[in-house]
Design a binder for these strands. Structure first.
Lengths: 221, 221
DNA sequence: ATTACAATTTAATATTAAGTTAACATCCCA
DNA sequence: TGGGATGTTAACTTAATATTAAATTGTAAT
């Protein structure tokens, strides 16, 4: 069972996030500020730390820097929580050494899927970057391999393909796709997904992505 | 038997939702506004509270906040009902501490499955995909397996089969079928169900779906 | 800052699968 | 055996997605 350290000054959020993660079987420990976080992290050795960007005194970015400077926490995963529309924090967060970023308002599904995805990635246990139907995705290098030929994709296309690819055969609804690829509060038109699907089909061939009318899309195995 | 507190100012909805949940074996108690809800919740200790977002005086969001501030209700599950297209309420609802969200117009099938899903998560139980008469339904992949051969079905046919399949041998009346597959407020002609049944029989073979004249249809075991 | 180019989104229209209806046929049980 | 209930079929309608181009936004280089 993975241990997650959750840091936020607002107890509502602490509780909400904590609830949603416990529900999925994670062990969650919490605290209210950066200082405690650093102590707790050293003591508890969590697999993942979720940091709110906006906190009084020591903010998330600073806390992240501090954490990263501690040797035993060099490889611990760090995710930021950031307020609506703060694009800045995303950038600064990654600079500070964050591994991912979750926008507020927090949607439980997005939260859980990001947390799982990131633990899966680095947890080394799964995601040995498998090949399905002759296609392989390399997240590190941000490349697609098809029949041993590599090529790159724009971010949205890459993320969309990666999502469908993460569970070949599973149907992803538009809602889920939007949550995962575009993120929490982003609102884009209905046809945007279609266009990206089209581009992927153009580049990969039609046989890989299947439409389930009225339901969603899936990566065909 | 799980207890559900249902809060809505419109009696039509109260009745409709209540009917659909009772039918599934839940104990449903109802009231018309936030104030009563808070009192009832404290007295009855429900497992789940379903709140309409739009209510006079105290709306769902506010009620939710109030409920969350009561200690013994901290862990009670809360689901919002929200009017068509109000994406805002989804966001605001989660901020307020909701666990899920059901869009109006309410489709009984969606309603029941969300309610079950969320109660299941809390209870920690998981359902397995069973095989009956050589047929298995995979919701995730949106596929039917017959004698280990897979094939897909259009949405309505899939949902119709899935409904009958959910309780093999049980007779489903046309009314129930309409409620579940089409949703409460949709009105379709008399022969529409027959046509879908026919298509299913065409694809699966006649032996699986049996007509009980004057009553309804069932999946034959 | 300006340009140039790539990525993304929107908007408008076309296309197609899915769903519905209508008209008629057939069944079955009082 | 006659009438309500269901079956069947093809035509019709609609909803969902595909497609395209144009508009917008983002990014990197000069």
């Amino acid at each position: 069972m993975e241990k997650i350290l959750l840091v936020d000054d607002e107890n509502d959020i602490l509780e909400f996030v904590s609830y949603n993660l416990s529900k999925e079987g994670f062990q969650v420990i919490t605290c209210n500020n950066g200082k405690e976080a650093i102590q707790l992290a050293q003591k508890e050795n969590p697999d993942l730390i979720i940091l709110d960007v906006m906190m009084p005194e020591m903010d998330g970015i600073e806390t992240c820097h501090e954490l990263r400077s501690i040797d035993k926490l060099k490889d611990t995963l760090i995710i930021f929580l950031s307020a609506r529309g703060e694009d800045y924090s995303q950038v600064a967060g990654f600079d500070a050494g964050a591994d991912d970023y979750i926008p507020k308002p927090i949607k439980p599904r997005l939260l859980v899927s990001r947390v799982k995805a990131i633990l899966r990635r680095k947890g080394g246990k799964v995601e040995a970057e498998e090949t399905h139907s002759g296609i392989r995705i390399d997240r590190e290098k941000y490349l697609i391999f098809k029949d041993n030929k590599e090529f790159s994709l724009p971010k949205k296309e890459f993320e969309l393909l990666a999502l469908l690819f993460s569970k070949p055969g599973k149907v992803f609804t538009r809602e889920i796709i939007l949550d995962n690829v575009w993120g929490g509060d982003v609102v884009v038109g209905d046809r945007t997904i279609d266009v990206h699907i089209r581009k992927l089909r153009e580049k990969l061939g039609d046989q890989y992505i299947k439409t389930i009318k009225g339901v969603g899309y899936k990566f065909e195995v």
